[in-house]
Every structure is written in C-alpha cells, then in structure tokens.
Amino acid sequence: MEFGEPGQGMKALDDVSLEIRANEFFTLLGPSGCGKTTLLRLIAGFEQPTSGVIRLYGEAMQDLPPFRRPVNTVFQSYALFPHMTVAQNIAFGLEMRGLGRAEIDRTVSAMLELVKLPDVGRRRADQLSGGQQQRIALARALANRPKVLLLDESLSALDLKLRKEMQIELKRLQADTGITFIFVTHDQEEALTMSDRIAVMSKGRILQIGTPSAIYEAPVNRTVADFIGETNFLTGEGTPEGLRLADGQCLALNEPASGPLTLAVRPERIRLSDQGNLEGRLEDIVYLGTDTIYLLEVAGQSGFRVRRQNDEGAGNGLHPGARVRIQVPAAALRVLAE
C-alpha cells in the first residue's frame, strides 16, 4: 500500500504491507511523522491510498467511505461531541445504525459500566476530566462493536499515573471484548507493555514487525534498536576471532563475520566484572533508585551504558575516572544490518 500527495516526491507511506490478526493488540510504533497516523487514517477511511488495497476479513475496504467500515476510532483529541451529553455521545453510533431506543439505552449503560463510569451519562462531555473523556471516547467507539478498534495516540494526553492505569485498562478491555485493537503510539514503553505484536515504522516504511520481546531482543537494524529502549552500539571490523574495535580490543562473537560491523547490546545485559572481556574508563555514575547506570568510554566511544540493579554490593566504591572491565556475553550481541 502506498500513500502520497499527488505531485510531491515524498510519500507519507511507501510500500507498506502488513497483516494484523483477529483479536490482536497490534501497535504501530514510530517517531512523529513516520506515517503511523496516516496508516491509521487509511484504515479508518479518512484518507484514500494512492495505490494498494486494505482488506478486512478478506473484503477490500479501500473504496468504502468511513461510515460503511466496521471500524471505529478513538481519536487523539477524543473528539467527543460538545453539544451532547455523555450518554448521547455513546448512543450516537447506535442511533446511526438505527437500533431501537431500549437496546440503545441498554448498550449505553453497559458501555458506561465497561469503562467504570456508570454515573456520568447525563453530564456533558466537556464537564469530564481528561481521563474520563478518554474512557467515554473508548466507550463510544466500542459501543458499535467494531471488528477493529483504532486508537490514535489515545493515551498521550494523560499524565503518567493515569496513563499507566489506562494501559492496563485497555489490555483488559481488549481481552474482554475480543476486538482487534490497532494502537498508534510514539511511546516505546507503552508499546512494549500492551502489544501482542508491534510494527516499528520510520519515514513511511515498516522496519520490523514482531512480538515485543522479539523487537526488543532482536532489532533488525540500528533505527529499531535505537528507538526501542536503551542500546549500546559497538562498531569495528569483523575478524575470524570476533569483532576488532578501534582501540584493538577484540570481542568474541558466536557467529564470526567479516567486514565493517555494527553490534547492538542492551545495557542491562552487561556486567561489571574484573574478569570481563572489555576494558573501559568510567565516566559517570547515575543513580536511578532501582538501578544504577554506569557511563563508560569504550574504545574511544563515549556514553557506553551499563545498567545494574541495585542489589547488595552494587557499585562497591567505583569512582568516575577509574578503569573498569565489563563482561559482554556473546549471546547478548546482535549484529545489525546497516
């Protein structure tokens, strides 16, 4: 599928192809401007693809107007109707489908129960707090029992505590309703917490699709590795013995490779150890409560991070400037495609 403004060289989406399974919590993750919201709007029907098809359960949808698609959206701004009460907001979609009054009333109160706000039906939408509006937007979209629910950066307007609550809440709702959720976010932590699978996007392309652990443990390239979590990059020359760094240190690899290489390693997989296989100079120590980050200079490269949990004996009297050895397990190293 492609999407671009006619007459412009830039494509907002370029050769995007993905398959989302039924009942899946699927996340489109990427920095702003990567095309994830455009992709969502294409699925919802607010934009038409320049080329390509969108299928839902085998049925081509790309030519249907939004009101004919069994898809509902929770908008980033919530887009609750300000001239209606909460109950009228939730009832809107049901009325559009021509349901009877009794059934509408039943569904509205069921939806309000579902999002745990049973008493706000008669209030106006703009009298609710941000978190409540968020829940009502969810209830309104779910009331139609869509086959797919689209969520556009739906949690980004909430404060941290509320966001954490809603993350768990969304997971629960998805499990309870059995509806496929497609969630758009730029927050990698949110994506990792909630998703069954994640598609990492950048510059209108999909870089990698996989489960949170696959994406985190085995990023396919530097952009993905850099975007998801903290990552250290080691560059050097592949030799039969392993990776030769700029200062001549050599790191053993499980599978020998040749030529210029970039390797990624997560900071929490590295240990400080006198018998370690790499040497570096300690630049700084950042205490984070549960963890401590040790910033090292390794092979002339500054900002190499080692993250250790603060259990007994951690840190034991290290000071910036000291030379330390670190143990980088071969299993934790990922060779990245450039």
Binding site: F67, T73, F92, M96
Partner: peptide, 23 residues
C-alpha cells in the same frame, strides 16, 4: 468548528446528511 468532530461522526456511522444534521 473542529472538523475532527465531523470525522468522528463519519467514523461512528453517520453519512453526510446525518453528520450535517447531528453535528
């Protein structure tokens, strides 16, 4: 007018006439 509200109406199944009339 916030045109996202009109998009929301379309999204919830309102055709053009209904979106005009109700939103």
């Amino acid at each position: 007018l916030d045109w996202r509200l009109v998009e929301a109406a379309f999204d919830l199944g309102a055709n053009r006439r209904k979106a005009l009339q109700r939103v």
